[in-house]
């Protein structure tokens, strides 16, 4: 593999270690020097990355981006700086989703060899077996796959042997996507020395915030909720709409029902929550809630969708208590004291 190919790949996947290396080796990434070196084009591309994520929920990387590889590689750390400057939980999350989603789509087009190489570089090591399935270590799998709530991702439904679990190509790319999402998100949480951010960056960040408000994602009430152990904002907002008699989507109802069941609410209590829905019928709702609780059908209890899934469905409105959590059930539990037991 020649240098050119490596560089193009680093531009296509700027979170790869080699991209980071390239950036640190070739370019002085201190904020002052960036300001000086006339990096207007880089800043512009960085803004584009975040706006892609906000508007399309996917950061696009076209051939023309790749060919301008220095700008492309640099734009990623700059975009991270912009997002962490804005310090808004929703923008952090949607940006990580956008980067990882874009990468997922590009990964699917790669050869097996490159797909596995990228996985390995990102710590999701896989080995292609003769049956065209990829085997990965169980701990690696568990730390990524729990985020999916479909039953097929549960370890109990997978082929498992001697510490390995088998996934297909597409599933493997999905796991890498989660790893990228986590990586980008963690990066945006790193704190910057606020005073060091150059004026041009602040202006760029402002245009991102403007785009965001134009998308009407901005809503009042972003202050951290006082009540610990209360419902996360995604659930509260759906509940509020339900109480007002607004018709809610299938997915919204699923979130509320599975969440309340997981919190240990009685079936009747959960059913009651839906009583103001325009299409409410007691018997049908009860049946459906019982089904979700695993009391009917195959006896499967449905899990609460993860933050990622809720975000992807446009229902994530995080407050400060959401910081760092990946699942609505973790909300408010982070700093809860004295809850731990002994055996």
């Amino acid at each position: 593999m020649d240098m050119g190919e490596n560089v193009l790949r680093a531009a296509r996947y700027p979170f790869l270690p080699e991209a980071r290396e390239f950036v640190s080796k070739h370019i002085d990434l201190s904020l002052e020097s960036l300001e000086k070196t006339g990096s207007e084009a880089v800043l512009k591309r960085a803004v584009e990355r975040v706006k892609d994520a906000l508007i399309l929920k996917e950061v696009r990387v076209m051939p023309q981006h790749e060919s301008n590889y220095v700008r492309e590689m640099l734009s990623f750390p700059i975009a991270i700086i912009l997002v962490s400057t804005i310090a808004n939980e929703y923008i952090r999350r949607i940006y990580s989703l956008g980067e990882s989603r874009g990468a997922y789509k590009r990964l699917l087009k790669e050869s097996d060899e490159i797909l596995l190489l990228i996985g390995e570089k990102l710590g999701v090591r896989g080995v292609m077996d003769s049956n065209n399935l990829i085997r990965i270590r169980i701990p690696t799998y568990l730390n990524l796959a729990y985020i999916f709530h479909e039953h097929r991702w549960k370890l109990v439904n997978r082929i498992v042997d001697k510490g390995y679990v088998w996934v297909n190509r597409m599933e493997y790319a999905r796991l890498i996507q989660i790893e990228i999402n986590n990586y980008v998100y963690e990066k945006t949480l790193e704190t910057l020395p606020v005073t060091a951010v150059p004026q041009s960056f602040k202006e760029a960040a402002k245009t991102i915030v403007e785009t965001w408000s134009r998308l009407e994602v901005a809503r009042p009430g972003y202050a951290a909720s006082e009540e610990k152990g209360g419902n996360p904002p995604c659930v509260s907002m759906i509940l509020k709409r339900m109480m007002a008699g607004e018709n809610t989507s299938h997915f919204e109802r699923l979130v509320v029902a599975t969440f309340m069941i997981a919190k240990g609410r009685e079936i009747e209590e959960v059913v009651e929550l839906f009583s103001k829905q325009p299409d409410y019928k007691y018997s049908i709702t009860k049946y459906q809630v019982e089904h979700l609780a695993g009391l009917r059908g195959g006896g499967k209890k449905y899990s609460v969708p993860s933050c990622r899934t809720i975000l992807a469905n446009g229902l994530c409105h995080p407050d400060e208590n959401c910081r760092g959590i990946k699942h609505p059930l973790s909300y408010g539990g982070k700093n809860a004291r004295g809850q731990y037991g002994v055996s």
Partner: peptide, 19 residues
């Protein structure tokens, strides 16, 4: 392994959520 991953191990042992 994270707490969430451990939950999956428990489900595997108790065979919960089996399709």
């Amino acid at each position: 392994i994270t707490a969430e991953g451990r939950r999956e191990i428990v489900d595997y042992l108790l065979i919960q959520g089996f399709e």
